[in-house]
Design a protein around this nucleic acid. Structure first.
Lengths: 195, 195
DNA sequence: TCGCTTTGTCAACACTCGTTGGCCTACACT
DNA sequence: AGTGTAGGCCAACGAGTGTTGACAAAGCGA
């Protein structure tokens, strides 16, 4: 009989694997790619640095797993058309505060090319298609996606990364109140007000 | 009489000092703080790494000099009141493309605390006061500054750092056309449209 | 000319990094 | 009992880092 073990992967403890991945995400989120050392991640996970290498072959592989992300965008066709801007702001605020994967992406994306590529693919594969579905016009969707993303990323940068005091102090309602109309315009305005 | 020479002799060291500083700015702008090594900077300046230490005592001191920056904000009271938004967008685009100091700040500010503090001080000491002068109301100025900054930084992040293809492809006129009204509202709208 | 400061080079130190291989322990199965 | 194996720890390697001190030219005032 073919006792040949077809087992694709050596069985390893899923629990510690998850622990390491979580610790890695936190470190990457706080320190960025270079300063988040394998040793620090291992210490957080209360484990030997060599274990990190056993579970994930290299720091780079570990990083690419830690940075997997799904925006879980809402279905804009289901919200009143004059509230899509506010809905988007609210959704992104939730995303930023629920998880630290977005912090990882932003902290590392500015210096690490793999993370930057990941962000590019998120824009192209998640945000833009959703806008196509909402507006029905594929041509301008990439531009609208970038506009929306720029405002959302910029505010997240100021509030969660740079921690500019006024940005931190603003309430959720204030942010939605200010940014909502902006996104509303980026999402719905027909074309450039060429003036 | 004052035989004391008031003019310091132009030493040759001033030239190399400037060369080093320029090379440092470029490296910091491209690679961020950690990956921009003293050795790489010295190689760019065609000089020995030890020289960098002699001229600037440490990497940290060199960095804090490389990151000095003046936004050179325009006098908004001199432009037509319905064009302040577009004027600001144009000015920031000029700033981003003329120099790479802003790239240094953004690339390093997300992981290096000194750079983040510098950005905070730029907001508080340059942007906010200028908005106070424009609007005449000191209370909301910090909020307006953060809103303007978030949109401008976000677009710069997408265009110059992450290099999202649609953001790179957009023309200057398109960016001004889309972001101008946004900044216009952030700068002039009386208060939150509480709805 | 001699001396002294400046400008630069070279080699090395002490340290941290990612990564590797060897060894130990626990335990399931026969 | 013995054996195999997976999970984990330890010490070390090689490379790269910021930083330092000794030493060689080069300029310049006397």
């Amino acid at each position: 009989m073919d006792q040949r073990t077809p087992l694709p992967k050596p069985r390893r403890s899923d629990a510690t694997r998850a622990t390491i991945l979580q610790a890695a995400r936190q470190r990457f989120a706080m320190d960025g790619y270079e300063r988040a050392t394998i040793r620090a991640i291992a210490a957080d996970a209360r484990i030997d640095p060599a274990m990190v290498m056993r579970y994930f072959e290299s720091k780079e592989k570990l990083f690419s797993l830690a940075v997997e992300f799904d925006l879980r965008l809402p279905d804009l066709t289901a919200v009143p058309r004059d509230q899509v801007g506010a809905a988007m702001v609210g959704h992104f605020l939730d995303m930023w505060e629920a998880d630290d994967t977005l912090q990882v992406l932003l902290r590392t994306g500015v210096t690490n090319d793999a993370a930057a590529e990941r962000m590019r693919s998120i824009f192209a594969a998640q945000l833009a298609p959703m806008i196509v579905e909402f507006t029905g016009e594929p041509a301008l969707a990439p531009n609208r996606a970038v506009l929306v993303g720029s405002q959302v990323l910029g505010m997240a940068l100021c509030r969660y990364i740079l921690k500019l005091p006024p940005a931190v102090a603003m309430s959720r309602e204030e942010i939605v109140g200010w940014l909502g109309p902006t996104l509303q315009r980026y999402l719905t305005e027909k074309a450039l007000s060429s003036r």
